[in-house]
Lab assay of single mutants.
Amino acid sequence: NQASVVANQLIPINTALTLVAMRSEVVTPVGIPAEDIPRLVSMQVNRAVPLGTTLMPDMVKGYA
């Protein structure tokens, strides 16, 4: 099972992602792969992401 990126805190809309804001977890459905965490740092989310939410490619500006 592949680990996905999960919000480690509430991430407000247009907030730049940080290492502290993300964690890796095996979840269903699978979201952005955990190995992409370094690439996600400083990218912005295009919606509010609640704690525990799996990050999907369409939630991160410039990711997809």
Rank of each mutant, 00 (worst) to 15 (best):
R39Y: 15
T18Q: 08
M43V: 04
A34P: 05
Q9L: 13
N1F: 11
Q9V: 14
D58Y: 11
S4M: 02
S24N: 05
P50A: 11
L19I: 08
Q9A: 14
V30N: 11
I37F: 02
M56K: 07
Y63A: 05
T28V: 13
P33E: 03
D36F: 10
K61H: 12
P12K: 10
V5L: 01
I11C: 05
V41N: 04
M43I: 05
G62C: 11
Q44A: 09
A21Q: 13
L55C: 04
Y63G: 05
N1L: 15
A16C: 12
N14L: 07
G62T: 06
V45R: 00
V30Q: 12
V6K: 00
R23Y: 05
T28Q: 11
V26T: 09
V5F: 02
I13C: 12
S42R: 10
G62D: 12
E25K: 08
Q9N: 08
V45H: 03
P12S: 08
D58L: 08
R39V: 11
L40E: 03
I32T: 01
T53F: 13
V27W: 04
S4I: 03
Q2S: 12
A21P: 03
T28D: 15
I37M: 12
T53K: 09
M43Y: 09
R47S: 07
K61S: 11
E35R: 09
D58I: 09
A48M: 14
T28M: 11
M22G: 02
T15P: 04
N14G: 13
T54I: 08
T54M: 02
T28W: 09
E35T: 14
R39I: 14
I37W: 02
A48G: 08
Q2C: 10
P29V: 05
T53E: 11
M59F: 10
P33D: 05
P57M: 07
Q2W: 12
V27I: 06
N46E: 07
P50L: 10
P12C: 06
R23F: 05
N46A: 13
P57H: 07
G31Y: 04
P38L: 13
M43K: 09
D58H: 12
A7T: 11
G52T: 00
M43P: 03
I37G: 03
I13E: 15
V30Y: 11
P57L: 00
G31V: 01
A21F: 14
L55I: 14
Q2N: 15
A16I: 15
A7E: 01
L19R: 10
P38D: 11
N1M: 15
E25A: 11
L10N: 15
V41A: 04
P29Q: 05
R39K: 15
Q9T: 13
P38V: 09
S42I: 04
I32E: 02
A3E: 10
L51E: 15
A7K: 00
A3S: 10
A16D: 08
V27D: 01
R39D: 06
I11F: 02
M22C: 05
S42N: 13
L40Q: 00
D36E: 15
D36S: 09
L17C: 05
M43Q: 06
T15N: 08
T53Q: 13
P33W: 08
Q9R: 13
N8G: 08
V27R: 11
D36V: 08
T18Y: 06
V26I: 13
V49T: 03
G62R: 06
A16P: 13
R23H: 05
M22H: 00
L55P: 02
A21I: 08
S24F: 07
P29C: 05
T15A: 11
T28I: 10
I11K: 01
V49G: 03
Y63I: 05
M59E: 02
S42H: 15
E35C: 10
L10R: 09
Y63K: 05
V27N: 03
A7M: 06
A48C: 13
R23W: 05
T54Q: 02
L40I: 12
I32F: 02
V49S: 02
E35S: 13
I13D: 11
Q9M: 14
A48P: 10
T53P: 01
S24R: 09
V5R: 01
G62N: 13
L51S: 15
N14Y: 15
L17A: 00
D58K: 07
T54L: 03
K61A: 11
I32K: 02
M59W: 11
Q9G: 05
L40A: 00
P50D: 10
D36A: 12
N1G: 15
T54N: 01
T15M: 10
Q44S: 14
N46W: 07
V49Y: 03
L10E: 14
V60Y: 00
T18C: 06
P57G: 07
V30A: 11
I13P: 13
D36P: 00
A16W: 12
N46G: 07
A7I: 06
I13T: 12
P38A: 11
T53L: 09
T53D: 10
S42D: 12
T15L: 04
R47Q: 14
V5P: 00
A21L: 14
V6C: 04
T18V: 07
L19A: 08
R23V: 06
N14K: 04
T54P: 05
Q44G: 05
L55D: 01
A21Y: 15
V41L: 10
L55Y: 00
L55G: 03
I32L: 04
P50T: 10
L51I: 14
A48F: 10
G52Q: 02
V60P: 01
Q2V: 12
V45P: 03
V6I: 12
E35D: 14
L19E: 09
L10Q: 12
V27C: 07
N1K: 09
L51D: 12
L51H: 11
V6R: 02
P38C: 15
G52K: 00
T53I: 08
A21G: 07
L55V: 08
A21H: 15
S42Q: 11
M59L: 03
E35L: 12
A7V: 10
R39G: 07
V6A: 01
V27S: 03
A16V: 11
R47F: 06
L17K: 00
A21K: 09
L17S: 01
N8D: 09
M56L: 09
T53Y: 12
Y63N: 05
V30E: 12
A3F: 11
I32G: 01
I37S: 02
L55F: 07
D36H: 14
G31R: 01
A48H: 14
R23Q: 05
S24G: 11
V20C: 10
V30H: 13
M56A: 05
P33T: 07
S24P: 14
A64M: 13
V27F: 01
G62F: 08
V30P: 14
I37T: 05
I11E: 03
Q44P: 08
N46P: 02
A48I: 14
V41Q: 04
V6F: 00
P12Y: 07
L51F: 14
T54A: 05
D58F: 14
S24D: 06
S42W: 08
A3K: 09
L55A: 03
G31C: 04
